[in-house]
């Protein structure tokens, strides 16, 4: 039996790496993949607590998170295609219309 703490710490580490990728990377596709990594880290915490409490609510929530992630991926990749078509670049620093 693995202690729940270990799963939670792993989840926090993965979430932190996702945040770092989100802030540091410049390619918009990689930034989007970092968001998926953060969602995965949260899913891990959900399942770990579901197992610790002996209730299935956490696992049902993970299914909802996965559905939302799939919908988000479809819309987000559509937006990325649009940006790439309008800017001829995937670098987020080229998308600075709102910048002073």
């Amino acid at each position: 039996m693995v202690p729940t703490n270990y799963y939670v710490i792993l989840s926090a580490v993965l979430f932190g790496l996702g945040v770092f990728g989100f802030v540091f990377k410049r390619n918009i596709i990689t930034i989007f993949m970092s968001i998926e990594l953060m969602l995965n880290a949260v899913n891990l915490a959900f399942v770990a607590f579901s197992q610790a409490l002996g209730k299935l609510d956490g696992q049902v929530f993970v299914l909802f998170v996965i559905v939302v992630a799939a919908a988000e991926a479809a819309v987000g990749l559509g937006i990325i295609i649009l940006i790439a078509r309008n800017r001829q670049s995937l670098n987020v620093e080229r998308v600075d219309l709102l910048k002073l």
Binding site: V8, A12, V13, V19, V23, F49, A52, G54
Partner: peptide
């Protein structure tokens, strides 16, 4: 980011003691 991950892990891990107490 290291500070954020450490804070998250420490905060949640401290509360899992009550989780394990409530486990059925």
């Amino acid at each position: 980011v290291v500070a954020l991950a450490g804070f998250l892990a420490a905060t949640i891990a401290r509360s899992t003691g009550t989780v394990q107490a409530a486990a059925q």
